[in-house]
């Protein structure tokens, strides 16, 4: 950044400058700032229509009363590779549209229907973790192993070999997750229980990510298969939908609706 000069660095890049100083002990006015790749955004997510209503299948069937917007959602404004600052589109445009649609929805229904049997499975899941004898598997250990395997094998560049390593490891972690135990049995602000529950979700998402990446034998956007380096619109111009199955996710696919922007290689 040094070539930019003090004025530009301090006025236009205050946060990045601050990060370098605090977390790296580096002075960006004088020294180069070290950079490294990281996962900082989740593309894909809960499928929604343009009014931020969650849809459950490839026909756009709406799940009544369920909305998603922002990073958790997939309206599909990003294609296969989100561009810089484009997550603001998700937040601002679809957050607003979600709010408007919720108001419309709330005005139409007598009273939103709670999902009849939603509570019990979640309660049982939490109680199972809380009730387990201490001394089982550790949340932080499994989480660390998951982070490492995803970082090493499921980055932008991947192939069948590394993805298979990841698949086996994630499956192993999932079975160990069945034995996690925690020390905090309290009912007030139990962040240890929350972290244990979240770890289960992380493992689910990791498995979906790895399984879909293995199945997609082409390269597109941020999914770069070194064993299938070309984009293959004939076979793969479609979205992946993952459904929970007994032994891992079942994959189905959904047509891409293309309007103004044709998919094309990024050459810059």
């Amino acid at each position: 950044m040094r070539h930019l000069g003090r004025k530009v660095i301090e006025e236009k890049l205050p946060d990045i400058t601050d990060f370098a100083r605090i977390y790296q002990g580096v002075e960006p006015l004088k020294e180069p700032v070290p950079v490294q790749p990281t996962a900082h955004y989740a593309m894909g997510g809960i499928p929604t229509n343009v009014n931020s209503e969650v849809v459950r299948d490839d026909k756009g069937t709406v799940v009544p009363g369920l909305f998603a917007a922002g990073e958790c959602a997939c309206v599909s404004v990003h294609g296969a590779n989100r561009l810089g600052t484009n997550s603001l589109v998700d937040l601002l445009v679809f957050g607003r549209r979600a709010g408007r649609q919720m108001a419309r929805y709330a005005g139409q229904v007598e009273r939103p229907l709670p999902i009849a049997d939603a509570l019990e499975p979640v309660r049982a899941e939490l109680e199972a973790i809380r009730g387990r004898e201490p001394g089982g598997e550790s949340v932080s250990v499994i989480r660390k192993e998951l982070q490492d395997v995803m970082m090493d094998n499921v980055g932008v560049y991947r192939d069948a070999t590394v993805l298979t390593v990841a698949l086996n490891k994630v499956n192993e972690l999932r079975s160990r997750y069945g034995k996690v135990s925690i020390a905090d049995c309290g009912s007030v602000f139990n962040t240890e229980l929350l972290e244990a529950q979240e770890l289960g979700y992380l493992l689910d998402i990791a498995l979906v990510t790895v399984t879909s990446a293995l199945a997609r034998t082409e390269s597109r956007g941020a999914h770069s298969r070194e064993d299938y380096p070309e984009r293959d619109d004939k076979k793969w111009l479609k979205h992946t939908l993952a459904y929970q199955g007994k032994d891992g996710p079942n994959l189905r696919y959904k047509q891409v609706s293309i309007t103004r922007f044709e998919p094309k290689p990024r050459t810059y």
């Binding site: 990060f19 977390y23 905090d184």
Partner: peptide, 18 residues
């Protein structure tokens, strides 16, 4: 929290002052 006492409770989210 990870190694000595899992019940230690504190809030954190971004980890980077935001």
């Amino acid at each position: 929290k990870a190694d000595q006492d899992g019940s230690l409770s504190f809030r954190r989210s971004c980890g980077h002052g935001i």
